[in-house]
């Protein structure tokens, strides 16, 4: 028995339903079969995902109704976590549904003590202008007699919480810009 997983416990319990039902009738005066109760996941669309916290890579199921996340719990089919999750993984729902999440581009002007909300259409060209100005001002084409073609005034940090495809595009774009101060969480 000690080697039985929880999943097997459930299966085993199912296999003995007939006997268990009789036994439970003997143990209680209440009615034998309670009506099924509505589940908050009834009628939802399920999508699999991988936990965004540590590196174990646990699987989760996200249940969605009317475009809203209503439940997130472990993916029982995932061979690593078999449905289980720690406190952080279990709390992923409050990442998806959280009033503190950023919903607008914010801009802080020099010396200001507050944010301003901005549209993307404004922010992207503004950022591109800053990047270009700094790159062009700090670009080092040569170091003595050597060609180095690097941008010394811009640095990049982060990526361990991004998807591979996002990391890849950042790695590609940063090198095209000549950035050499490119680092992320793996270093610290």
């Amino acid at each position: 028995m000690s080697n039985l997983s929880r999943r097997e416990f459930m299966t085993l319990s199912g296999a003995t339903t007939g006997g268990a039902l009789l036994a439970s009738l003997a143990l209680t005066t209440e009615s034998a079969a309670s009506p099924r109760l509505a589940l908050k996941t009834d009628g939802t669309t399920e999508t699999s995902t991988i936990c965004p916290y540590c590196g174990v890579g646990c699987g989760l199921i996200v249940s969605v109704r009317d475009g809203k996340v209503v439940n997130i719990e472990g993916d029982p089919d995932h061979p690593v976590n078999e449905g289980s999750l720690c406190s952080k993984g279990m709390a992923l729902f409050q990442i998806a549904v959280n009033d503190r999440r950023l919903q607008k581009v914010r801009y802080r002007a020099p010396g200001s003590d507050q944010w301003q909300e901005k549209p993307w259409e404004w922010a992207l060209p503004e950022i591109a202008n800053r990047v270009k100005a700094t790159r062009d001002a700090t670009f080092k084409a040569r170091d003595g007699d050597k060609t180095v073609n690097r941008t010394e005034g811009i640095a990049g940090l982060g990526g361990a919480a991004l998807d591979n495809e996002e990391c890849y595009l950042w790695s590609k774009l940063a090198r095209a810009l000549g950035i050499v101060y490119l680092e992320h969480q793996a270093r610290i």
Partner: peptide
């Protein structure tokens, strides 16, 4: 400072690599 609002993992699609080198795909749920 330009602070850009990013999606969480359940709002986009892509792969992540676990510590055991398993590269696993995840999907946008919302």
């Amino acid at each position: 400072v330009f602070l850009l609002p990013a999606c969480s993992s359940v709002e986009k699609e892509g792969s992540v690599s676990s510590s055991g080198r398993w590269v696993q795909w995840r999907y946008g749920a919302v």
